[in-house]
Amino acid sequence: MPSFVRGHLYAVLAHVGFLVFWQLAVSIGKVPTYILPGPIDTFLALGEPSYNWLRHTWITALEIFGGYGIAVVVGVALAVLFVWIPALNAALMPLLITLNMVPKVAMAPLFIIWFSYGVFPNMLIAFTICFFPIVLTTYRGLVEVEPELLDLVKSLKGNRWQIFTKIQLPGSLPFLFSGMKVAAVLAVAGAVVGEFIASDSGLGYFLLVQQNALNTSAMMMALLLITGLGVLLYGTVAALEYVFVTRKGISP
């Protein structure tokens, strides 16, 4: 327990230390605010009601969490289908790997043609960008079962469903979580790039608007909020991983 506390204490200290260093560097270096505001100026930007922080943050959060949630559901479902229907896997897996090579953010202009702009196309970009790591890692986790373990179950005349529920599904969890952690980082980038390209709200949109006004503290604050959303998502996944994987001594 003490080492647990100490580990977290160090993490908190490092974060605080970073903010202090940032503030000191800006103050001592006399860096103009429009180039780089210190953390104090950045946080003061939160007090400006005309910035509509709540609304922009809500929109971006919706895109990130929505796209991510759909990616997890669709990715896991597809991986499961691939396991149950080998023909589907043989046909679609190579196609998926090819499609994975398409730079997802470069599809954003197309999405705008197809779906106009707003929350949905941005959610879709977040989805496409984080769907692949989830489906690929989950599939690998599901099929990676020691052959002798299968022999053991088959020697007991265990059926396909038992193998799936008792061995494959729980065995794939460490893989699923590692895919979900990679995807969490990508989802944030996907949603914000989508907002850059076309939207009328969200933190990415806000960032561009404030750029024109050379409003650097507002931009920094938007960046911090985007980062905060990412940390929230990643933290949630890591917490779930802790409950379902780490606590049980399962390593990927």
Partner: peptide, 11 residues
């Protein structure tokens, strides 16, 4: 059956 590896389910 018993194999060379214990093949216990980690979870």
């Amino acid at each position: 059956m018993v194999f060379q590896q214990a093949l216990l389910l980690k979870w």
